[in-house]
Simulated scan of single mutants.
Amino acid sequence: MSGEGPDAVAARLTGRAVVARRRLTGAVTEVDLDGGPVVVKDAGSAAAARAEAAGLGWLAEAGAVRVPVVHGREGQWLVTGSVPEGRPDAAAALRFGRELAALHAAGADAFGAPPPGGPADAYIGAAPMSNVPGDNWPDWYARHRVLPYLRRAVDAGTLRSAEAAVIERVCERVDQWAGPAEPPARLHGDLWSGNVLWGADGHVWLIDPAAHGGHRETDLAMLQLFGCPHLARVLEGYEEAAPLAPGRRQRVGLHQLFPLLVHTVLFGRSYAEQALAAARRYASA
């Protein structure tokens, strides 16, 4: 079965006949089945497929933001529902902000808590991500979301040791800029614009989560970092539903260190420069 393609996997996991297929990316194929399309993803490993399936289920359980249904997984393959795409819309963005606030409010057992049934050794994109529970966000964030990727970047030669020291100084003082303590939120965890689908039904759908318990401002900072249509409306809807603590704008760069360092590990030096620029604003304060 390991040599089979996405159409065979889709047919077996759904029990429906294949009509056609379309490759969307190198790892993702939309398969038309008798009764409608599904999306088949080669997650790269069984652990990654398990983590993503558990994450989608955990997000869906909150009954807030829409996510594709999981039809099944097998080895590295994951089969989910297909989302007919529409166009970004201001009204949908406002609604999405409210729904994202409700998702975060569904909570998690701890910072770093994996979704029920999900592995502790998970992934964000193609990068490993450890879900190690903690009860103090500043310490947990530095230890398990910033420093692991900083070390990998230094080991790969993408960041120099002297540059890494700037980010390490920020990690030593995270609590100085963290803002008021908040309970663990239920995060999507990889909330860049490519994982935000504007559905033809007028709703926003989220795909490809790296779900875990974390600080709600991390999801929002990632939306801002990589661009999101109608972001001002998303934030407006969010603030209406669940106002953020004063000083959020000053904390954005702190929350962006995590995704910037992940991208440094995956994609190289240009993201290292962005991570350093964000860190220097805090290190010099």
Results as ranks from 00 to 15, higher is better:
69 V>Q: 13
200 A>C: 07
165 A>E: 15
59 L>P: 05
237 G>C: 00
101 A>N: 04
26 G>C: 06
24 L>Y: 00
244 L>S: 02
170 V>H: 08
48 A>M: 08
188 H>N: 10
103 L>V: 08
178 A>M: 09
235 L>T: 05
262 V>W: 11
166 V>R: 10
18 V>E: 00
148 P>R: 03
279 A>P: 13
185 A>F: 01
6 P>E: 10
240 E>G: 00
31 V>R: 11
283 A>G: 11
245 A>Q: 11
234 V>F: 03
76 Q>T: 09
6 P>T: 06
61 E>V: 03
126 A>V: 13
42 D>N: 10
186 R>E: 06
78 L>N: 01
4 E>S: 14
155 D>I: 12
202 G>R: 10
204 V>S: 04
78 L>E: 03
100 L>C: 11
62 A>Q: 09
123 Y>W: 12
71 H>E: 02
181 A>Q: 12
213 G>M: 07
223 L>I: 08
182 E>H: 09
75 G>D: 10
233 R>F: 13
229 P>D: 11
278 A>T: 13
260 L>Q: 12
13 L>S: 04
222 M>N: 02
13 L>H: 01
227 G>W: 14
45 S>K: 02
121 D>K: 14
249 R>G: 09
89 D>L: 06
29 T>N: 04
74 E>H: 12
212 H>E: 03
52 E>T: 10
272 A>S: 07
55 G>Y: 04
209 P>T: 00
38 V>R: 00
